[in-house]
C-alpha cells in the first residue's frame, strides 16, 4: 500500500496526487465491502438455516433424525437413507471423474500437440456450460435405458447419477488441474529429462508432485460441484429413500440424495411444520459437510512439502 502510493506520487505530477489517493481509497473501500459482505451473507445464510432447521433437531430425537426410515407422511424423518444416497452417488462420481479428469488434464497439458489442445479446450469449456437439467434429461432418456439393458433392475440408479455427476464435474477438474500443471516451472521437466528420465517419469515423479496443491483443489471443487448438484441427479437416480442394500449391486439401485429430497418436497410442505424444518435440517447437514470438505482440502493443500512446491513455483 505504502509502496503503491509512493510510486504513484513519483509518476504523477503533484497536483494529481490527491486525486490518485482518492481513487485508491475508493477502490479499496469497494473491495473491502465486497469481501466483508460475502462473509456476512454466508453468515446470514447459516443463521437462517439454523432458525428454520433447529426445531427439527430439538423436536426429533437424534436417533430418529438420523434413523433409517424417511417417510414424512408417517412423521418418520430418518436422514440416513438420504445421507447414504448422497454418499454413494458422490463417491461413484468421484471414482469415475477423478482418473478421467486428471488423465485428460495431463494429456492436454503435457502430451498433446498444440493443435489438439486448441480443439480440446473449447470443447471442454462448452461441456461446462451445458445446463444440468439438459444433462439430467439426456441421462433419463439415453443413459438409463442403456444401464437397464446392462442388467440392472431399473435404469434409474445411483450409478446413473454418478455418471451424470462425473460428467458435470469433469470440466471443472480438467481446467483447474491443467492450470495447476501449467504453473509447474518448465525447468523441472527439463531437469528431469536431462538426466535420463522418460517423459512419463518426469510427469509422474516431478510434475505431478509439484502440482499437487492445485490438483487437490481441482478434485475438491469437482466434488463440491457433484455434492451440491440437484436437478440432474433427481431425474436419474430413481428417488427411492431406502437404505441401499450393501453388496456388489450397491451402485445399481435407486437412491435418493439429500439435495433431491429438499427440492422435491419443499414445495409441498406447510411452512413451520416439522417436515419443513427437517428439510432445513438436511440443509444444515449439507452445509456442514461442504465445510468439512473445504477444511479437508485446505489441510491437504497446506500440508508440508506442498507449500514448498508452491514456493518452487515462484522460483
Amino acid at each position: 500500500m505504502a509502496v503503491v502510493q509512493k510510486s504513484s506520487q513519483i509518476d504523477a505530477p503533484t497536483d494529481a496526487t490527491s486525486q490518485t489517493n482518492w481513487g485508491e481509497w475508493f477502490i479499496e473501500g469497494v473491495i473491502k465491502v465486497a469481501g466483508i459482505s460475502s462473509i456476512v451473507i454466508i453468515g446470514l445464510i447459516f443463521l437462517f438455516l439454523l432458525r428454520e432447521g433447529l426445531p427439527a433437531f430439538l423436536d426429533i430425537p437424534l436417533r430418529q433424525l438420523f434413523g433409517t426410515r424417511w417417510y414424512p407422511i408417517e412423521d418418520a424423518f430418518g436422514m440416513a437413507p438420504l445421507l447414504a444416497g448422497s454418499l454413494i452417488v458422490t463417491v461413484g462420481a468421484v471414482v469415475i471423474a477423478l482418473p478421467l479428469g486428471l488423465t485428460t488434464a495431463i494429456y492436454m497439458g503435457e502430451i498433446a500437440p498444440p493443435w489438439q489442445r486448441e480443439i480440446l479446450k473449447p470443447i471442454i469449456e462448452v461441456l461446462a456450460g451445458i445446463p444440468s437439467i439438459v444433462l439430467g434429461f439426456l441421462g433419463w432418456i439415453a443413459l438409463a435405458p442403456l444401464i437397464q439393458r446392462l442388467g440392472a433392475p431399473t435404469g434409474l440408479t445411483a450409478f446413473t447419477g454418478s455418471l451424470i455427476l462425473a460428467y458435470m464435474s469433469l470440466p471443472t477438474i480438467i481446467s483447474i488441474a491443467e492450470d495447476a500443471l501449467y504453473a509447474v516451472p518448465k525447468e523441472y521437466r527439463g531437469g528431469a529429462l536431462a538426466i535420463g528420465a522418460t517423459q512419463w517419469q518426469s510427469i509422474w515423479r516431478v510434475v505431478l508432485p509439484a502440482a499437487r496443491p492445485g490438483l487437490v483443489i481441482a478434485v475438491m471443487l469437482g466434488i463440491g460441484r457433484a455434492i451440491g448438484e440437484t436437478m440432474a441427479v433427481m431425474m436419474v437416480t430413481g428417488n427411492a429413500a431406502n437404505i441401499p442394500s450393501l453388496g456388489s449391486g450397491i451402485f445399481f439401485q435407486p437412491v435418493r440424495t439429500m439435495t433431491a429430497t429438499i427440492a422435491a418436497e419443499m414445495g409441498e410442505v406447510a411452512q413451520g411444520s416439522l417436515h419443513y424444518s427437517t428439510l432445513f435440517a438436511i440443509g444444515i447437514v449439507l452445509f456442514v459437510i461442504s465445510f468439512a470438505i473445504n477444511w479437508l482440502a485446505g489441510r491437504l493443500v497446506g500440508m508440508k512439502g506442498m507449500r514448498r512446491s508452491r514456493r518452487g513455483g515462484m522460483l
Binding site: 523441472y188 527439463g190 531437469g191 536431462a194 538426466i195 508432485p209 512439502g305 514448498r308 512446491s309 522460483l315
Partner: peptide, 16 residues
Amino acid sequence: RQHIGMVFQRPNPFPQ
C-alpha cells in the same frame, strides 16, 4: 541423456 547430462542456467532443483 544418461550419458550426457545437463546443468541449467538457473538452478532447478525439484521441490523435493
